[in-house]
Design a protein around this nucleic acid. Sequence first.
DNA 1: CTGAAAGCGCTAACAT
DNA 2: ATGTTAGCGCTTTCAG
Lengths: 331, 331
Amino acid sequence: MTVSRVLRHSGDVSEKTRAKVLEAAKRLGYVPNRIAGGLASQRVNLVGVIIPSLSNMVFPEVLAGINEVLEDTPLQPVFGLSRYDPPHEEKVLFEMLSWRPSGLIVTGLEHSEASRAMLRAAGIPVVEILDLDGEPIDSVVGISHRRAGAEMARAIAGAGYRRIGFLGTKMPMDHRARKRFEGFTGALARAGLEIVDQEFYSGGSGLEKGREMTRALLDRHPDLDFLYFSNDMIAAGGLLYCLERGFDVPGKLGLAGFNGIELLSGLPLRPATMDIQRREIGRRAAQIIADCVEKGLPGKGERVALTPRIDPGHTLRADLARCGQAVRDQV
Amino acid sequence: MTVSRVLRHSGDVSEKTRAKVLEAAKRLGYVPNRIAGGLASQRVNLVGVIIPSLSNMVFPEVLAGINEVLEDTPLQPVFGLSRYDPPHEEKVLFEMLSWRPSGLIVTGLEHSEASRAMLRAAGIPVVEILDLDGEPIDSVVGISHRRAGAEMARAIAGAGYRRIGFLGTKMPMDHRARKRFEGFTGALARAGLEIVDQEFYSGGSGLEKGREMTRALLDRHPDLDFLYFSNDMIAAGGLLYCLERGFDVPGKLGLAGFNGIELLSGLPLRPATMDIQRREIGRRAAQIIADCVEKGLPGKGERVALTPRIDPGHTLRADLARCGQAVRDQV
DNA sequence: CTGAAAGCGCTAACAT
DNA sequence: ATGTTAGCGCTTTCAG
């Protein structure tokens, strides 16, 4: 009846009745039932967001970006965690879809076949985020991790470093880390270089892990002149270890991480890193969904390629990078 | 009809029909519509979780605990962010309630009057988490921040420190930080001590913030012998600053933070801290909801008081703490 | 064991 | 500007 109209601020209602209804609603503590509403109107203003984990520092920022734009719309984000595990992602996705959301934002381009089928069949806008290297289902916004890895390799090689070690996650689970690694080694190869040694770990990334891995690697190869970490947290741990042990950073030993997390700027010395604009990725993805919902499109197949920037930190400072080994030795 | 029965694994269905239905469902890519289901059954297996923010490292761990126990139940968590802002919390809460969740977990005991009214009227189990100092609406699981602050004060005073500085968030927003501060200063007063000076900040906590504040405070009072930070992240920043500047930590200058975050264990030296068992808090809260839902209770008014433990780090090591100033001077 | 019927609390379309 | 009516896709209850 009329009540519904005023509560939804739609249609023509006289000022008087509107006031009366609002008053009654407040007095009774009325909370509308969106379940019924959604069923009747065949749409719910929910946007499902599936990310691998929250313990990463990366994803909360993406969520912040998503929130930021959805707040100016009637849409509401709902989160689910895939744990870097396709079968689990499938389950979460199924749950989400059973709520008939207006749109979906999922991490990465790798999904189980069933997940891809569901996504395609859902008839709603789907945005895959954070990665560009692969076949998107509908829209995609992110960076090319292969290229990111390659660029870092070129910067490092260009700065004159030659004996490079790699430290990162065991990669079966994390496709983006794997692509970065591939891009990295590929570009090194083209520069006639090869990783001297590597060290892998699994589990959450913490400073401590970074320390341990760095120690292990440097114990095996004290002559390394560069350490490339697959994320900033372990890079920070590695840096602290190196400083403690008196390694000459960045003079004789360069460090680089990945992600551009804020933590780095608090360290005594900043490893190089690469900012992937997590917040912007969230914003753009949400914007695509919002556009589609507004226009009633079931997706728009947009591709937003963001460009990660190398942050040289104190390791790849431009003046050093330009001149290579010779200059570095003078420092 | 029968289909509904097999999909819900309930009631008596012959093996043959069950198989037939399942096959058809899979073939058609059928995803049940929980909106209709929820409306019909008048219940939804959603648990609303409202936390202030994700950028804090504290809350993701609580969420992990919640997830952990809800995974063994049919319940599903749904997150909302209150941004430390009661009016916004009210809005988020209203949204959540409009989905008629089976239970609610909210952070803290301070809510707007309207929020409290909604919570009470919802007729579902409500668990307030992370704080104990105040009047709960229904159940509560957390620690007493007043006591936590007081205990840290006693430990610091007991270890012989006398010229104590405080560094923390501007507290209008964060009630738990405020209570800690009150407990801290109260206990110091009882020991005949007083904070020499303090430094406040607002905005996200990062290493950098910790550095800046520490510098400001130590510039004003180079003779401080202890710095109590309102969280571990700024404590870590402070530590790095002190080490860089060659302050004799922990010999002449002790440091303590709060939260027991993993980051600390990667630092060259660990400030004292207090572990509040965030994950356990999440687990217990979720368990209460799950119990109530299973038994059909609209709440059980349970009170779970967890005891935070002081982690002395390298600053309040027991051997030093016992003997006070004299011993510290020998170190 | 399976089918039929009656809603759940709303919205949308159509009267008035 | 307001009231009326017919579902939305399920679950629940009650009959076969």
